Amino acid sequence: MVLRRIRNMVVATVNDNLDKMENPLVMINQYLRDMEEELSKARHAVAQQEAIKADFERRLTYSQKMKKKRYDQAQIAVNSGEEDLARKALMEMKQHEEKVLQYEEIYEQSVAQLVELKEQLGKLEERIQALRDKRHTLVARANVVKAKEHMNASINRIDSNSSYREFQRLEARIMDMETKANVYTAYNFDGEQTAFTKLEHEEDVEKELQKLKEVQKA
């Protein structure tokens, strides 16, 4: 008996812990928190990619500007008969030209990557918003279930509670007392009726006796 009681207590404790672990609302909230963290990371990644794109855009613009500048300087040097200076300007122009090609490719890649990241971010935001909306519905349904479980447990607790049985016993006792009180009242009422009837009879007897006396005198 003792071992069975201990076993039941252990099983009840384990089941209670499992219920807490598998609480749908707790799991939903945790899942949403995880998704919010992922959303924050995704937004940070998009912000970083925007910064990278902007940086390569500045580099590209600068290289394009320097390429043109060195070409113009080379032309001026040639017109002035400064061939060495023109060669130097053209050499730097070629270097900037290579950078332009390099930065154009990288910039285009960064733009494509940014577009892709923003699309993924938009999908993630839509999904999380749908989960938020779904959460309200699930919370409402879970609250209804919880309320029903609580009421059922309360009803079962009341039905099995000794105080409720004692209440029923007292109710039966009161009904018994009411029955006895009604019987006593009826008895008293009948007794009073009998006394009144006796008085009426005595009056009738006296009247009849008086009549007899009058007949005898006559």
Rank of each mutant, 00 (worst) to 15 (best):
Y164S: 09
K69V: 03
T137Q: 08
R4Q: 10
I52E: 10
L90N: 08
Y31I: 00
A47F: 11
E192A: 12
Q102A: 11
I76E: 12
M66G: 01
Q95G: 04
Y184N: 07
K69I: 05
D176V: 04
D55F: 13
A12F: 12
S162F: 03
G81Q: 00
E37C: 08
L199N: 09
M1Q: 08
E166A: 15
R59S: 04
A89G: 08
A42E: 05
R135H: 07
N152K: 14
Q193K: 01
A181F: 06
K123G: 04
E203H: 15
Q216E: 05
Y184K: 06
L3T: 09
L117Y: 07
E36A: 15
L131F: 11
L25R: 02
R132G: 01
L18I: 15
N8S: 14
D84V: 13
S63Q: 02
K53R: 12
E22W: 14
E97S: 01
V14C: 01
E208D: 04
K211L: 05
K213Q: 09
V183S: 03
Q30A: 13
Q64R: 03
M21Y: 11
F167C: 12
R87S: 03
Q75T: 15
Q113C: 06
D19C: 02
E166I: 11
E166Y: 14
A45G: 03
M66P: 00
K198M: 05
E37F: 13
K94G: 00
A42L: 06
E92G: 02
H201T: 04
K88D: 07
E214R: 05
K88L: 06
E206D: 12
A186P: 00
D84G: 08
Y62R: 04
D84T: 14
D16G: 06
E83A: 09
I6S: 02
L101F: 03
N29R: 08
K67M: 03
A86D: 07
I52D: 07
A89M: 10
K217V: 10
E22K: 11
M9R: 15
A195T: 07
R58E: 05
D133G: 08
N23F: 06
D204I: 04
E126D: 11
L131Q: 08
H201L: 14
Q102M: 10
S162L: 04
T13M: 05
V100Y: 01
Q48A: 12
E22V: 08
S110V: 05
K68P: 01
H201S: 09
Q129N: 12
N156H: 02
A47S: 14
E57C: 06
A186Y: 01
E203D: 15
T194V: 13
L124G: 03
K134N: 09
D190E: 15
E92M: 07
E208F: 09
E98K: 01
M175T: 15
M151Y: 15
D34G: 04
N29G: 05
N79C: 07
A218M: 07
F189L: 06
L18Q: 06
L25F: 03
Y103S: 01
A51V: 04
L170F: 13
G122T: 13
T179Y: 13
N15T: 09
A195V: 08
K148M: 10
K123E: 07
A153Y: 12
D16Y: 11
E104F: 01
V215P: 01
A130M: 09
M1T: 09
I174N: 01
A181E: 02
V2R: 15
Y107A: 05
G191Q: 13
K94M: 03
